[in-house]
Write a protein that binds this DNA or RNA. Structure first.
Lengths: 152, 152
DNA sequence: GGCTCAGGTCGATCGCGTCCACGGACTGTA
DNA sequence: TACAGTCCGTGGACGCGATCGACCTGAGCC
């Protein structure tokens, strides 16, 4: 992970469809060298995936909700996690410090679907209570922040 | 936005670096036809960007926080939003229903930086109070959910 | 000094991206 | 029914990019 790797990561966070040739020009290496570096970044897990970012409304996901989960005292956290993983509407899942063990971001098409989702979450074994907040609009999401040189 | 467009969107949400030729094979069209469709999806705003998804720790962003913002009664929401937009650590920003007008997801390198960020947010004109929760771990994030056929 | 290895360049080949001309289906009109 | 226009696709052509293999160079180590 040197400065060139960081540049590559930053370029690909901005536009995942840049060609290797273009990346090579930007960082001042040859295309095969860039190809190899990017391959290593992928296989070492630094780059996890390349995703198109899509306007959620246009694929029928107009309702965004943030849901806090309180576990009951007998809950097995791994089981709860497993149950959440099986629910496709849950796009993100964070394990939190605080009373609410999990914070979920979910997207559904309608308020009715959100209601169903909340019922399902409340029925999940290990879940004591849920607290749902609705996002009226997403101002921005997953904006890549500029890569800081070296963290240390 | 027909069924083929939805397939293209779904394929690109799964892997933004698929070639047009490969997309063409998957949806049963020619490469130029796919090229044109994807171009239209981009210019119509359905596809907003292509991003590499990076392990945050490896670029020095090991601390994730979720921050709720309460505006004061004299706040100009647009100004507050503008101020947030200028803070690169804020990766996502949702305008919420409820007491907290905004919910922010921020990533920083260290707890010390998080402290500075919170101070900065509290000093922002229009912000009455903040409530920060720390994510101990990110179980998953921005998992693309399967595209439902047509929503209507 | 010489070996080894990591990581680069160069050159060649093959497939892909992209432009363009052409063609068929659908629609509205006379 | 015939016709024209539009939309959306295909196929061919061509130049560029992806990718492989051979080779080069510098650093570290016996």
């Amino acid at each position: 992970m040197d400065a060139i790797d960081l540049s590559l990561v930053e370029l690909l966070r901005g536009n995942a469809r840049l060609s290797y040739a273009e990346l090579a020009r930007q960082v001042g290496l040859s295309a095969p060298a860039v190809h190899e570096r990017v391959g290593k970044l992928e296989s070492s897990g630094v780059i996890r995936a390349y995703r198109a970012e899509v306007e959620p409304e246009s694929i029928g996901l107009g309702v965004t909700a943030i849901i806090g989960i309180v576990e009951d005292s007998a809950a097995d956290t791994d089981d709860v996690l497993e149950a959440f993983r099986a629910i496709p509407e849950i796009e993100s899942c964070y394990f939190m410090a605080g009373v609410e063990s999990f914070l979920l971001k979910a997207r559904v098409g309608t308020i009715a679907e959100l209601e169903q989702l909340i019922v399902r979450l409340n029925r999940t074994r290990g879940v004591a209570s849920t607290r749902t907040s609705i996002a009226l609009s997403t101002k921005w999401e997953n904006r890549p922040q500029p890569v800081t040189p070296p963290p240390a």
